[in-house]
Lab assay of single mutants.
Amino acid sequence: GIPATNLSRVAGLEKQLAIELKVKQGAENMIQTYSNGSTKDRKLLLTAQQMLQDSKTKIDIIRMQLRRALQ
């Protein structure tokens, strides 16, 4: 079985993952909103794209940590 310490770690990672998935969803929504907007929305679009990139990276890292914890 999986050690108890790993189980609480997994629960924490799953919570983090859920949050990051919401951030990713929000960033994707912002990108959709701003991509057909005016030029003043360009900065917001770039910010949203950066957020999305960061979020995807975090999600990958969390998933990797989850896999390790579940081994």
Rank of each mutant, 00 (worst) to 15 (best):
R42Q: 14
A4Q: 11
Q50W: 04
D54S: 08
S8V: 13
I31E: 02
M64F: 06
K40G: 10
T47P: 02
R68N: 12
K22P: 00
M64P: 12
V10M: 04
I31F: 03
L7C: 15
Q65I: 04
L17D: 00
E28P: 00
R67N: 06
Q49K: 07
L7R: 13
K43G: 09
N36S: 13
E14F: 15
L44E: 05
A4G: 10
A27C: 13
G12H: 14
L45W: 04
D41E: 06
L17K: 00
D60W: 14
L7Q: 08
K43L: 12
I62Y: 02
S38T: 11
G26R: 14
I2C: 15
T47F: 14
A11N: 05
L21G: 01
E28C: 09
L17F: 01
E28L: 12
Q49N: 05
A11Y: 06
T57M: 14
S8A: 10
E28G: 01
E28Q: 07
N36A: 07
A27E: 00
E20P: 00
G37E: 09
Q65E: 12
N36W: 04
Y34H: 07
I62N: 00
Q53W: 05
Q16F: 03
T33H: 13
I31D: 01
Q32G: 03
Q50L: 09
I2P: 09
G26C: 15
A18N: 05
E14Q: 14
Q25N: 05
K15W: 07
K58R: 14
S38W: 03
Q50Y: 04
E28H: 03
K43N: 09
K43Y: 06
A4D: 11
T5G: 12
A4Y: 01
I59L: 04
R42P: 14
I62E: 00
Q32F: 11
I61A: 10
S8N: 07
K15T: 05
G1W: 10
T33N: 13
Q53P: 00
Q49G: 02
S35A: 09
T5Q: 09
N29M: 10
L17A: 00
G12R: 15
S55T: 09
Y34R: 03
Q16P: 00
L21P: 00
S8E: 13
Y34L: 15
A18S: 06
K43H: 12
R67D: 09
A11I: 11
Q49M: 11
E14W: 15
A4N: 13
R63Q: 09
I61V: 06
I62D: 00
L13I: 02
N36I: 05
V23G: 02
E14H: 11
S8I: 09
T57F: 07
T5N: 13
L13D: 00
R42V: 13
D54N: 08
V10W: 02
Q25T: 06
L52W: 08
L46E: 14
Q53I: 09
L45K: 01
D41H: 04
L7H: 14
M51N: 03
A27Y: 12
E28T: 03
L44Y: 04
R68P: 02
A69N: 03
